[in-house]
Amino acid sequence: MATPSLGEDTAKAVLRQVEFYFGDSNLPKDDFLKTKINESEDDMVCLALICSFSKMRGHLNLTEVKKADDVPDCTLKVVAQTLRTSSSLKVSEDGKKVGRSTKLLEPEELIEQLDSRTIAASPLELNVQREALEAFFGQYAKVNSVRLPRHVVQRKYFCGTALIEFSAVEDAQTVLEQSLVFAGAELELKPKKDFDVIREKEVEEFERNRSITTSNGSNAEEKHPKGLLVAFKLKSASAGDSAEQNGPDEKKTAEMKMTKKVDDKHGSPIDKVVEKENKSSISIYKDDMNVVLREDLKDVFKKFGTVKVLLKLVSLTI
């Protein structure tokens, strides 16, 4: 009787997930998994335990499984069969254990290698999905992992720059030389080391501004570091008032009321904006006083600094 196998999509998801668990980017930070490896004599871990992890249960449709002992033997067999195709994993002869095929490098060397094969990509929307980025960059090279760092100030939300780790340094260099467009936005690609330098400066600026605010009392003017995400509402005004306040070139933008209120689910400003994606649409709505285009908003806000990304959703009250 032939050994059953996983479907193609499921097999890919399972292989990718287990390679991630034992990969260079996750294992050094995974204290639980490292402890299990150190406790074993052969540096391998019970495959049933791996299959009981939440994401693996999702891939394998094991919704009723609560612990490793509940994983069916038939599932372990097909998972072991799939994992044996990996060059970075090893599976025991009986198919009950799995581990890395190579030893983990020393921390300093590991960090250097990780940084060398990782790039930073921006601007991205706050609700971007890891899976979408993995599929997009996977067209150009094998992706080991995608990380979505939090914003320096608003730790609850994604900062707009993703870190994509490839399987080889050469792959990362090749992608850096590409001109890529994701979700309608031209991506700015840079080495992770460049991102780290910018990130460090943002953290220092935030800490400095926070200490100034604290020392001056709670009513001191709040300082907002570079990269802060804000939402705003547009309110209609009479043509005369708009022209008087903003001038003829900006009267379509109406009166702007700044607010930092953000949608709890996606971190996006509330309600909808009329979004136009091509030049023909822009020309159609250019003179419509009831339509606010992205170009109008960028023209207004660029006087305060570089607008890195304009989100699709803003509050519009007419």
Rank of each mutant, 00 (worst) to 15 (best):
V152R: 03
E170H: 09
T161P: 04
K201P: 01
V128S: 10
T102H: 10
K156G: 10
V128Q: 10
V91G: 07
A183N: 15
N127C: 10
L105T: 04
D94E: 11
I111N: 02
S167V: 12
N144V: 05
D115N: 14
D94V: 05
L189G: 10
L114S: 08
A120R: 05
A120G: 13
D115P: 03
R199L: 04
D94T: 10
E125T: 13
L89Y: 07
A121V: 15
V197A: 14
R147Y: 09
D94N: 15
L124E: 02
V152F: 03
L83C: 03
L110R: 14
R199M: 03
E200G: 03
K192L: 13
R199Q: 09
F182P: 06
S88H: 08
F136L: 13
S87M: 10
E109T: 08
G138W: 03
E134P: 01
L83P: 02
E106T: 03
S122W: 06
P191D: 06
Q129W: 01
V152A: 04
Q139R: 14
S87E: 15
F136G: 12
L133W: 00
L110W: 03
L83W: 02
D194N: 07
V128E: 04
I198V: 00
T102S: 05
T161R: 12
D194F: 01
K190L: 14
R84T: 03
K103C: 11
E177P: 01
N127H: 12
P149S: 09
L180A: 13
R100F: 02
Y157T: 14
T85V: 03
Q113R: 15
F137L: 03
L126G: 07
F137E: 06
C159S: 13
A135C: 06
G95R: 06
N127Q: 10
I119K: 01
A132N: 08
D171Q: 10
K190N: 09
E165T: 14
Q173S: 11
E125C: 09
T82I: 04
E177Y: 01
Q129V: 12
F137I: 08
L104I: 13
D171G: 11
A162N: 02
L176K: 07
V181W: 00
E188K: 13
E109K: 15
T82A: 05
S86L: 09
S122Q: 05
L104N: 00
A172H: 01
A132M: 08
G99F: 11
A135F: 02
I198K: 08
K142A: 15
L133G: 07
C159M: 11
T85Y: 02
F195M: 01
H151Y: 07
A185I: 11
R147C: 08
R100W: 02
S88G: 01
L110I: 01
L89Q: 04
K192F: 13
G95K: 13
V98M: 07
K156H: 11
V143C: 00
R150F: 02
P107Q: 00
L189Y: 11
R147E: 09
K156Q: 15
L114E: 14
G184E: 00
V197C: 14
